[in-house]
Design a protein around this nucleic acid. Structure first.
Length: 459
RNA sequence: GACCCCUUCGUCUAACGGUUAGGACACAUCCCUUUCACGGAUGCGAUGCGAGUUCGAUUCUCGCAGGGGUCGCCA
């Protein structure tokens, strides 16, 4: 039985990989993995005018990024290809002939071919919504083929699902109202329809269907914003499904063990970028220093978008690229990222937190100058620190702490009074990593040089 | 307009017909703390409305309202 389970994701390459589409793909993938079935990718590119190579690439890369591997598809091949609808014209022609033989179609004056609806009530047994009944239709007959010989979505979709032996069709609820047309077609072909399951829609924060303009609409935007795929995968699982796990965290392995289509919700869900980012922060923090370094470097290598350079995301990515990580040793960068990883939620947000680790000519914040002038003994304290640190024989976090504590005692101030001064010297900023960690990463030389620099500026 | 789906805190959601209606994100306050965070604690906050069934309704039924979707020679 489970041998025969075959589901498919059938996007059209007319835009980007939409987050709603990705979620549909995700649920199909989970169903296939859960039941040992096949997950098939089919490109619905019958509308020549609207297809783009860019969109095609976004689909392949987006699915791979999310870890939704296809068992059959344009890139993987398979026994039921070709997997581009644009290459299946002969199959459609053959099916059209079958339909002509049944007398269920007729040709209009301009050459378009229409399908005669049976005009009887049709029940959709839906795995998510239950039985949905549509009364005998009064709509005009449906067009199947354009005068130029190309075919319409409803026709090719049904033909391909038959030909590719698709057992279950899980798609957005926006298709529910059209499904009776598909069932009518299956019956006309004398074929049993697959099992359907209509998944609730993904809504934008204002409550309407996610569209291209909405934040987070395309999967590419997550990649460029520095999201970790596991976080996006996890978040998508949570919209429309509640895995019966301890918390809300779930891996693709776990999800594909326990996914149950009958647990899919019936109501639409609004997309919450804040929660998605929270999950991302969680997943980034779970990475060890090497994994984090690898991840951030990978993000830094992404191409800047050529079309939307003015977005907040691309500005952050640009900043990350200005770090010139290729000139930085992984030992330094991994320690730097590690030191602030609980302060950011996206990989692209690291730059302002770590840039001073990689270059000496950072700017001093205005806020820092203001605070420094409010500390009368700043210069003398820094001079004392400089003296002791310069003479340090071992340079590690423990010893650094000891030295700072000693200087504080000598100067009759709390160690806490010295920390901001050191932070200002080393980073030019009022916020940042733990001071002793900063000093340790920078090393003795750079640390003392930077303190000297601030003393000079003060005098 | 016709048809279809849906309706629990701001958002995502949990709750055999019996719970002080639970959790997560967000928000607020406090603790921790050299900063920012992280972490911990507390707080704020919901069953759309109206009938009915029932000893008892978030849960079942109907009506209404609201939201979403579909009615293409787009997919």
């Amino acid at each position: 039985m489970s041998e025969n389970i075959r589901v498919r994701f059938a996007p059209s390459p007319t835009g980007y990989l939409h987050v709603g589409g990705a979620r549909t793909a995700l649920f199909n993938w989970l169903f296939a993995r859960r039941h040992g079935g096949k997950f098939i990718l089919r490109i619905e590119d019958t509308d020549q005018a609207r297809n783009t190579d860019e969109a095609m690439k976004a689909i392949f890369e987006g699915l791979k990024w999310l870890g939704l591997d296809c068992d059959e598809g344009p890139e993987t091949g398979g026994d039921y290809g070709p997997y581009y609808q644009s290459q299946r014209q002969d199959i459609y022609d053959a099916y059209m002939s079958k339909l002509e033989a049944t007398g269920r179609v007729y040709t209009e004056e301009n050459g378009a071919v229409r399908f005669k609806f049976s005009r009887i009530p049709i029940v959709i047994p839906d795995l998510v919504c239950g039985d949905v009944t549509f009364a005998a239709t009064e709509e005009p007959d449906m067009t199947l083929r354009r005068p130029d010989g190309s075919y319409i979505f409803h026709f090719v979709n049904v033909v391909d699902d038959i030909e590719m032996r698709i057992s279950h069709v899980f798609r957005g609820e926006d298709h529910l109202s059209n499904t009776w047309k598909h069932i009518d077609l299956y019956h006309a072909f004398g074929v049993e329809a697959p099992r359907f399951g209509h998944i609730p829609l993904l809504l934008n924060p204002s409550g309407s269907k996610m569209s291209k303009r909405d934040e987070g609409a395309s999967i590419e935007s997550y990649i460029q914003a520095g999201f970790h795929p596991n976080a996006v995968f996890n978040y998508l699982c949570l919209l429309g499904w509640t895995p019966k796990t301890e918390g809300e965290l779930i891996t693709s392995e776990q999800a594909s063990q326990i996914f149950d289509i009958s647990e899919i919700h019936h109501s639409n869900a609004r997309f919450d970028m804040v929660k998605c980012k929270w999950l991302n922060q969680h997943y980034m923090r779970a990475l060890d220093p090497d994994e984090l370094d690898t991840f951030v470097r990978k993000v830094a290598q992404l191409a800047l978008p050529t079309t939307h350079c003015d977005t907040k995301e691309s500005a952050l990515l640009w900043q990350l690229q200005q770090l010139n990580l290729t000139t930085v040793s992984p030992a330094v960068s991994s320690a730097a990222f590690q030191s602030v990883k609980e302060k950011v939620s996206l990989a692209t947000e690291f730059a302002p937190w770590v840039h001073f680790f990689f270059r000496d000519d950072f700017l001093i914040d205005e806020e820092v100058r203001t605070k420094l002038t409010a500390i009368p003994q700043a210069a003398s304290l820094l001079t004392a620190l400089h003296h002791s640190l310069k003479n340090a024989t071992t340079w590690d976090e423990t010893n650094i702490t000891t030295i700072v504590t000693e200087v504080a005692a000598e100067q009759k101030v709390k160690p806490g009074a010295l920390m901001p001064l050191l932070r200002f010297s080393l980073s030019g900023q009022t916020r940042g990593p733990d001071v002793k960690i900063m000093m340790n990463i920078l090393g003795q030389n750079s640390t003392t040089t930077r303190i000297e620099r601030l003393i000079t500026i003060l005098s």
